[in-house]
Design a binder for these strands. Structure first.
Lengths: 215, 215
DNA sequence: CGGAATCCTCTTCGATACTG
DNA sequence: CAGTATCGAAGAGGATTCCG
């Protein structure tokens, strides 16, 4: 049985870290931010982690009600892992980690480091401030050479999809770098448009309002 | 030399965790939130951590410019560790960890778990929302049987002191439990006063305004 | 195929003893 | 007091196997 090493401190920080402070754990949470995933989907995004260790971590998280294991569909025997409401609360922790990570001296992107476009989606989702345009609704296509991301603006936040095509109201087009600047609040949409870095089409008003939610 | 194990992922979360995700690291940051500390001050608050490991962690943090080592006083040979501006940015991460930790199913306080009053001060400092009363200034004494904490309200946030006596404008008195409810936003000052759990004196208006910054 | 269990090696941790 | 050295214990990483 996993006896879960603990700091044994009567402190909320230490308490939290007892549950999600171990190696790999927060990266597992990151993987589940965009929705439920299966064991086999998690593994390739966690290169270097053994299958046994992933099993252990998933069990720990499950016993602490941070995630839950459920059938992919009602009568299926295939299982998927999903954040519980408690686990979703970790969005706030991840958001601040992203913010802190952004301002870090950027090490030159080492060639042996893994990259998954979904990680950008996680950042976009978490950095989006719906309160800046609470009533906004619609779908924006974020198009670059590398990927086509559909951002579906809904009442309960931003839903992001990279794998399926959706009908969309507006399009923002450009390269990854410019989008990064936009989403991370380093440049405004107007700045990037006037620099010819980004281009908008369709419902441009929607696109503008949506983009203003990142600054 | 410390070769600092890395996740090797082009993701801001993973990048951040490469620096501050290892065991004990965030607890060291917690210790430095209230101000600089010496090696010997850190150790007893990190029970179970070997001295060698603390040395290693401090060096890692120093090379990544999260903390810096400096003389206690200009010409002293005694050294202390202090957060850099980059390190101070981790306040946001710690704040969210505290918030998440608070809503965790409270395990019965195990007898072998360590408790340090300073950890409460860290929580108070980080949960205080100055923007709720931006112009407030003064000193509030938070008095319980266990401790006398001076909260000095300043422009750049809350300064907290448990070791020295200060002149104060207002006093809030009660037991630790009630204070916890107040600071963690679970109860309002008015509620706690009407329950006879807390008592205020001195500049009660200041005390009320200050207390409202936690809800 | 998904994922749990087993082994084995290597690294990190934890605790204590030691040194400038 | 501030760290270094050491060593057994625990955990991580990788490959492989087993089972439904």
């Amino acid at each position: 049985m996993s006896k879960a090493r603990s700091y044994k401190q009567a402190c909320n920080i230490a308490l939290a870290l007892d549950l999600i402070g171990e190696r790999w754990t927060l990266l597992i949470i990151r993987e589940l931010i965009l929705g439920p995933k299966r064991f086999g989907d998690l593994l390739p995004h966690l290169q270097g982690m053994g299958t046994n260790l992933l099993t252990t971590r998933l069990k720990e998280l499950e016993t602490h009600a941070v995630i839950e294991k459920q059938p992919c569909s009602p009568n299926s025997r295939r299982m998927q892992y999903k954040l519980t409401p408690l686990g979703e609360g970790l969005e706030n922790v991840l958001r601040e980690l992203i913010r802190w990570g952004i301002q870090l001296p950027q090490s030159p992107p080492s060639p042996d480091s893994l990259y998954q476009p979904e990680w950008d989606l996680v950042a976009i989702k978490l950095l989006y401030k719906r309160e800046k345009a609470p009533k906004l609704e619609g779908t924006v296509l974020i198009k670059s050479v590398e990927s086509s991301i559909y951002a579906i603006i809904a009442k309960d936040g931003l839903q992001l999809d990279i794998s399926t095509t959706h009908t969309h109201d507006a399009t923002i087009e450009g390269n990854r770098d410019s989008f990064e600047k936009l989403f991370k609040g380093k440049s405004s949409l107007n700045q990037l448009i006037s620099q010819n870095s980004l281009k908008i089409s369709g419902n441009t008003s929607l696109a503008r309002k949506w983009a203003s939610c990142f600054s």
